[in-house]
Design a protein around this nucleic acid. Structure first.
Length: 621
DNA sequence: GCAAGGTC
């Protein structure tokens, strides 16, 4: 019998390689250590007996950079970077991934690519092909792409039965993004850094960076700061009648809410006082429901970690990764909020059954039946973040425990009943004006018993009947001030970034960290982001010269252009050239105009009409 | 010294 053919399979990370090998070998494999682990076993492949090797890379193998001749900041005009050649070099030379792939591919007749099924994964496919020598013409037909929608036995086997070709267009879209981001970011960064050199000692920062993600991120923080500083406080007045009924002392709300004219408000107060008798004109009761959460994805974990636990995104991810490698939670980087159909809720619940804090709730769910989780979205990557092994407070460090606790609470809540309550609204008329009061009565705590901070407040009302008349005990004329918004919280910033497509679940923490480390913003108590003088000056400068530079649309513009490449609707080289030409125009204009703002005292911005800059240089094209 | 995207 001929020796079996050899097949090399490559995943994006070691954990996926392990999952794939376990499924395909039915657990019958041998594993040896290498740069990344290699799992070996025999299988039937395309109808033949084959020996299979499954290993992985660790994310991208390569990243782009300029050749050495462009690395000298003083000898290179940043303008020339837009047309400069670029090189791909190993992202982490010390890891020797390239050598590892080259060695493991020796003697293999087939390559199966198990990289994550997104654009970046498609790009890494071609990096792997390059490293394994399968890019030569005669080897191309022996390269297969496995497309899996989740890392489950069912989907892995399905992918094996439906091997396809890797998608070159999607890979090229990533190449395009890499080149655009590199050239635009580095050109502006080098110019700005050199420009600020020695100026404005109080704005010290070694590098004054620019980037199509980090700059709009800073833009959000400064935008809120400007709303605060330009806020004009106004006095307002509102009329609050009080009644006493069956021992309840109630303050009623006015349908007009508030008025900005004291004389008018006083007139209404007088009308109410002169009438003095409230008539109940309507009583309505409505069944309300507060929905249980969907499965937990990374972005939502980061938001809660920041707003409720006080952990920054970087720290939260470090804690989550640690919990993951120790087996306490599932893979923490995912966009999906929908559980896969094969998810075993019973096993996961059972694991938590003896927890001293939520074990009782879990037992009840197991006995009385848990709810089907809400629909959520399936991004095709990993299942939502869930607890795995049970842990108690003494087993983990304090911060890790708090994060683990939240993951458990969220998981249990996601399959607990919705919270049900009755909302009762009573409407009154007095002196021709309408007022109301609202009561709430919880009929089913549901998931809020495991997430008590989301509980609906109980608010009881006395009995009323329509047509009933009640004496007004007091009429207050309340004077208040409109309040400016507060500084942007980190959690709000994460939401804005997600909504505007700035960064990804993995890179959002990096961009936020960047603008902190560069001294553009400071994190203050309550994880509020307060821009520094430097951060404000930068954004006000862009707003004056070319607002596009700090708007979130700068990212969506790039994403839109590279999507054309990914879909095969535009040529990669032409798209890159077209986009770079526009940024080069912006760069030239920016360099000329900088004189008019940053050269002056930075306080000059305060006197500027910010909207006078040119608009649509890029977005109109 | 510089971007943004993977992953640890």
């Amino acid at each position: 019998m001929a020796p079996p053919c050899k097949v090399l399979m490559v995943a994006e990370k070691p954990s996926i390689a392990l999952s794939i090998a376990s499924v395909l070998s039915h657990g019958q494999m041998s594993t040896r250590r290498g740069v990344t682990e290699v799992h070996e076993f025999d299988i039937m492949f395309l109808g033949f007996h084959a020996h299979c090797r499954v290993t992985s890379v660790i994310g991208h193998v390569f990243s782009v950079d300029f050749p050495a001749s462009y690395q000298d900041w003083t000898a290179t005009d940043p303008l020339n970077l837009f047309q400069a050649p670029i090189l791909k070099t190993e992202s982490n030379p010390k890891a020797h991934i390239q050598r590892h792939l080259s060695q493991e591919s020796r003697g293999c007749g087939y390559l199966v690519l198990w990289l994550d099924c997104d654009r970046e994964g498609e790009n890494i496919c071609f990096e792997v092909i390059e490293c394994t020598g399968f890019h030569v013409k005669e080897a191309k037909e022996r390269v297969y792409r496995a497309r899996f929608s989740s890392v489950t036995e069912k989907d892995i086997l399905k992918a094996m039965d439906n091997l396809v070709e890797p998608n070159k267009d999607e890979a090229l879209a990533v190449d395009a993004r890499q080149e655009i981001d590199l050239k635009v970011g580095v050109a502006f960064t080098r110019f700005q850094t050199s420009y600020f050199q020695g100026k404005y000692g109080n704005l010290d920062s070694r590098v004054i960076s620019y980037g199509p993600c980090q700059t709009p991120t800073l833009g959000f923080c400064v935008q809120r700061y400007l709303q605060i500083t330009t806020f004009k406080q106004e006095k307002f007045w509102t009329v609050h009648p009080y009644i006493i009924k069956n021992g309840y002392d109630l303050q009623l709300e006015w349908e007009r809410q508030m008025l900005f004219d004291l004389n008018v408000a006083t007139m209404f107060q007088k009308l109410v006082m002169e009438d003095g008798l409230l008539e109940v004109i309507d009583i309505s009761e409505k069944q309300e429901s507060k929905g249980r959460p969907c499965g937990l994805n990374t972005v939502n974990l980061l938001k809660v970690a920041s707003s409720a636990l006080g952990f920054g995104p970087q720290v939260a991810m470090q804690l989550a990764e640690r919990l993951y490698t120790q087996g306490f939670i599932s893979y923490p980087r995912t966009e999906s909020t929908a559980y896969p159909s094969s998810f075993d809720f019973k096993v996961t619940l059972n694991e938590q059954i003896s927890n001293p804090l939520w074990g009782d709730h879990v037992q009840r769910l197991l006995v009385e039946g848990y709810q089907k989780p809400r629909m959520g979205t399936d991004a095709g990557d990993h299942p939502p973040i869930t607890p795995m092994q049970s842990a108690t407070e003494d087993m983990l460090a304090k911060d890790a425990w708090r994060l683990y606790q939240y993951v458990c609470q969220h998981f249990i809540a996601s399959i607990s009943p919705d919270c049900k309550f009755v909302r009762k609204k009573v409407q009154f008329k007095v002196g021709g004006e309408c007022f109301h009061c609202v009561g709430q009565h919880v009929t089913l705590e549901g998931f809020t018993s495991i997430m008590p901070w989301l509980a609906v407040n109980e608010k009881r009302l006395p009995q009323f009947t329509i047509g009933e008349k009640i004496e007004v005990s007091n009429v207050e004329l309340y004077e208040g001030n409109t309040e400016p918004p507060d500084y942007l919280t980190e959690s709000e910033l994460i939401s804005l970034m997600e909504k505007n497509g700035i960064g990804t679940d993995a890179s959002i923490p990096v961009h936020i960290n960047n603008i902190c480390e560069r001294n553009y913003v400071q994190v203050q108590s309550g994880r509020k982001l307060v821009p520094t003088a430097l951060g404000i000056a930068l954004i006000r400068g862009y707003q004056y010269i070319d607002p596009d530079l700090c708007l979130p649309e700068i990212r969506s513009f790039i994403e839109h252009q590279i999507t054309l490449v990914a879909k095969g609707q535009a040529d990669h080289v032409r798209v890159v050239q077209h986009v770079l030409q526009q940024f080069k125009n912006k760069y030239s204009y920016f360099v000329k105009q900088v004189w008019h703002c940053w050269a002056l005292d930075l306080r000059y911005f305060d006197q500027l009409n910010i909207s006078c800059g040119p608009t649509g240089l890029l977005l109109s094209c």
